[in-house]
Simulated assay, not measured.
Amino acid sequence: MKIGYPCVNEAMDCSAANTFRLASYSEERLVAAVTANLACLRRLLEWNVAQGLLFFRMGSGIVPFGSHEINTFPWQQHFGAEFRALGDYIRAHNLRVSFHPDQFVVLNSPSPAIVQRSIEELVYQGSMLDLMELDGTAKLQIHVGGLYGERELAISRFVGVHATLPAAVRARVVVENDDRLFPLRDCLDLHARTGVPVLFDNFHHECLSHGEPMHEALRLAAATWHPIADGVPMLDYSSQAPAERKGKHTTSMVEELFRGFVAELHGLDFDMMLEIKDKEASALRAVAILRELGLAAPAPGGPVPPLALPPGPGTPPKARAKKVVKS
């Protein structure tokens, strides 16, 4: 069982998501951003390996405007060697990586333009995994999409669009049960109709389900993964933030709840992504618990790379998510 966290190491001094405004687009800016992003991603993976955190969800913004029509720069060729080196490192250290495209990726939208942009984004993110020469166990995680007033029609649209995806993308796509519209039962229906594996989210299942007990839901989701083509089933883990709206993720892992969830696995093997606000901090606590239970490899020996390095000339500052002010 591998433990991971998504996209950002909160304590690290660099970002793998450096970008710039679309109005400022230039090939020089693009090359500088991608160079910095790939260098930071390598450092981040090295730190994770030294800690025994062997699952990582990479951020979608490694190549700014990677699926946008403005980006005609041949970045695949320009950075081919760097992507291959990352893939070599990932395989050599038995890491598992994935992407979770943004919410604008909606394959079942009634809008052909939105569907086309969604496919282009999946192709872009899948191409990075292809450049790393990673097999089909490196996944692209998406949601079913919108309901649009008619559940069966919405699911049927997903089925139809899924069939049109390039084979290389289709081999990587997995679908996650969500907390508002499409619970596990709908995702299992999609699997039956398309073969798409179901990435199980325990917290979403707690928010929206048809009453399936957790251990049974885990078993049903795990059965949708092919052991060779898809690899060990993936799952997202989190829990409810106390005194917050239903569905808000907790800031830090609650050990008692995590131990209780692990007991629900009943021997099933999953690679577990912790969707918890403090990211690597909770991931370290989780992997320590799994080691105690004999469910994760012992802590690796050797030095742990530093989270901060002296800044080099021209090093961009760590990118921070912009706060959205709601009116």
Rank of each mutant, 00 (worst) to 15 (best):
V115K: 11
L140C: 02
G146F: 05
R151G: 11
M132C: 12
A113F: 02
E133A: 14
G149W: 07
Q141P: 05
I155P: 06
G136W: 04
L147H: 02
Q141T: 12
I119D: 01
E121C: 15
G146K: 04
F158T: 11
G146V: 06
R151Y: 05
S118I: 07
L131W: 03
Q116H: 13
E133Y: 02
E120C: 12
S109Q: 04
G149A: 12
Q141V: 11
E150V: 13
V123Q: 07
S127V: 05
L129G: 11
A154N: 10
R117D: 14
R157C: 07
Q116S: 06
P110R: 00
S111V: 06
G136D: 10
Q125W: 03
E150K: 15
V115G: 13
S118T: 13
L147R: 04
G145H: 06
D135M: 08
L122E: 01
V123I: 15
L134P: 04
E152D: 15
D135K: 09
L122C: 09
R117E: 14
G146M: 11
L147W: 03
Q141S: 10
D135V: 01
L134A: 01
E152I: 12
Y124W: 03
G145V: 00
V123H: 00
L129M: 12
R157A: 08
K139C: 10
G126Y: 00
I155R: 13
L147T: 08
V123A: 09
I142Q: 00
Y124K: 06
E133D: 06
L140V: 03
V144Y: 02
P112A: 12
L140E: 05
H143P: 00
E121T: 15
V115D: 08
D135N: 09
E121P: 12
S111M: 01
G145E: 03
G145P: 11
G136P: 07
E133T: 09
L147E: 04
Q125E: 14
V144S: 13
L147Y: 08
A113T: 08
H143K: 08
R157E: 01
R151A: 15
A138M: 02
E152V: 10
P110E: 01
A154E: 01
R157G: 08
Q125M: 12
E120L: 12
I155A: 14
Q125G: 10
A138P: 13
L122W: 00
V159I: 15
V115I: 10
Y124V: 01
L153Q: 12
V123N: 08
Q125F: 09
L134T: 06
I119K: 06
V159G: 10
I155T: 15
R157M: 10
Q141Y: 02
L153Y: 10
I155S: 11
Y148K: 05
M128Y: 03
E152T: 14
S156K: 14
E120M: 08
G146E: 02
